[in-house]
């Protein structure tokens, strides 16, 4: 494998409706973590990041958030050096999906606005980033529960190995109050009931002065296993990269402020890049069936 570096990252969180005790329910939470610094809410402006008003005006909340996080990572990167845009989402663009579904029922399948349908397509963020930046290379979207972002990241690494210079990879999901209610009934709901989270990383085959980390591997394992069995699997992965779980830093999904949601590993990775150092694992065990490990060396 060629070496694969993380040369940029952006995480945009805009959520509200927390029901946990340690947060004020009425307070919305916003954070934009961009290459190691936090952009204050007052100076964060979607209009500045997505300058094409004609594209922006049709974007739903998650499309806007995902496109903005992706564009932040690509800032200053020549379009023709980008060998791929690989995105991930578990549930996609819920606001647009709900809007189209409600209109369809309310208007008895007639006189429906096409925009929410179009925006509900899972690859909308990746294709908008391509359109805004004129990037014609590989464009892919993964939609597999707790493996969504892991699949995107491992595909992005494969593209670097196949010769790409830079590849953008990201994961994003949104929550709406109605869907949150359903997820609570299903037993796996995030801590926020409304809002969206998008996390992107810029991978590169070239190490520069601005490199944040080297990405070693993304491993996934599917199925129900005993905790012992999983622990052995994780140790074996660590061992094959010359480290062990005890001496490496571990960032767990689901333990972050947001609680379990399908592309949590994208934001956990961004948080690890800010707070972690040295050999670091991102550990994810989504719904007891989607197990993954991301191993990186934070510089």
């Amino acid at each position: 494998m060629r070496h694969c570096y993380i040369n940029g990252y952006a995480l945009i969180i805009s959520v509200d409706g927390f029901d946990s005790v340690d947060r004020d329910d009425s307070k919305a939470f916003f954070d934009c973590l961009y290459n190691g610094s936090h952009v204050p809410r007052d100076s964060f402006d979607y209009k500045k990041i997505i300058s094409d008003g004609n594209l922006r005006r049709r974007m739903g909340p998650l499309v806007k958030s995902g496109v903005a996080a992706g564009l932040l990572c690509l800032d200053g990167v020549p379009s023709d050096s980008v060998g791929g845009i690989v995105t991930a989402t578990g549930l996609g663009f819920l606001s647009d999906t709900e809007r189209f579904m409600n209109d369809m029922i309310d208007r008895n399948e007639s006189m429906l606005n096409p925009s929410p349908f179009m925006q509900s397509t899972f690859n909308t963020v990746g294709s908008h980033i391509a359109m805004i930046r004129g990037i014609h290379s590989y464009n892919m979207t993964y939609v597999h529960r707790g493996f969504s972002f892991e699949s995107a990241l491992s595909d992005a690494m494969m593209l670097i190995d196949e010769g790409a210079e830079t590849v953008l990879a990201g994961g994003f999901d949104e929550m709406t109050f109605p869907v949150h209610k359903l997820l609570v009934r299903l037993g796996s709901a995030p801590k926020f009931q409304n809002g969206e989270i998008s996390g992107f990383v810029l991978l590169s085959s070239i190490r520069t002065g601005n490199t944040f980390a080297e990405l070693h591997c993304v491993k996934t394992r599917y199925g129900h296993f005993s905790e012992e069995n999983l622990e052995k699997w994780r140790s074996d992965v660590a061992l094959s990269y010359g480290t062990d779980l005890e001496s490496a830093g571990i960032f767990d999904c689901d333990s972050s402020v947001s609680g379990p949601y399908m592309t949590d590993s994208a934001s956990v990775l961004c948080n690890a890049l800010e707070k972690g150092s040295g050999k670091t694992f991102i550990r994810n065990d989504f719904c007891g069936k989607n197990h993954s490990l991301i191993l990186l060396d934070i510089l």
């Binding site: 004609n54 049709r58 006189m111 606005n113 096409p114 925009s115 179009m118």
Partner: peptide, 13 residues
């Protein structure tokens, strides 16, 4: 105004 084919559909509606 820079409208496109999707806007045309919205105007038809």
């Amino acid at each position: 105004l820079g409208l496109d084919s999707i806007d045309a559909l919205e105007i038809i509606l």
